[in-house]
Amino acid sequence: MIDGVTQMKPIWYFVGWVLIVIGVLVSAAGIYYLIFPIDLDIALRGLHMSIWWGAILIAGGALLSFFNRKPMSV
């Protein structure tokens, strides 16, 4: 609350953080199972998509959070 006006962070800020957290978990899963491989019956496992997709989510989330970090008055 500033000067009687309620401040709310833009929706994109929160979206960004959720994408970052989920991206970290996805990439961490990819890296973990790269180091400690398990027998998985999936196609294209050599692409290590978890690592790349997690990184993309992190990058997208970071951009969204950074450019929408200023609160808005409601």
């Binding site: 989920i22 978990l25 996805v26 990439s27 961490a28 899963a29 990819g30 973990y32 199972y33 998985l40 999936i42 196609a43 294209l44 496992r45 290590h48 998509m49 978890s50 997709w53 997690g54």
Partner: peptide, 15 residues
């Protein structure tokens, strides 16, 4: 999803 998604992506897919 079962065919292509490794751990991590399974979580994103189910979510």
């Amino acid at each position: 999803m079962m065919r292509f998604f490794p751990p991590g992506l399974v979580g994103v897919g189910v979510t």
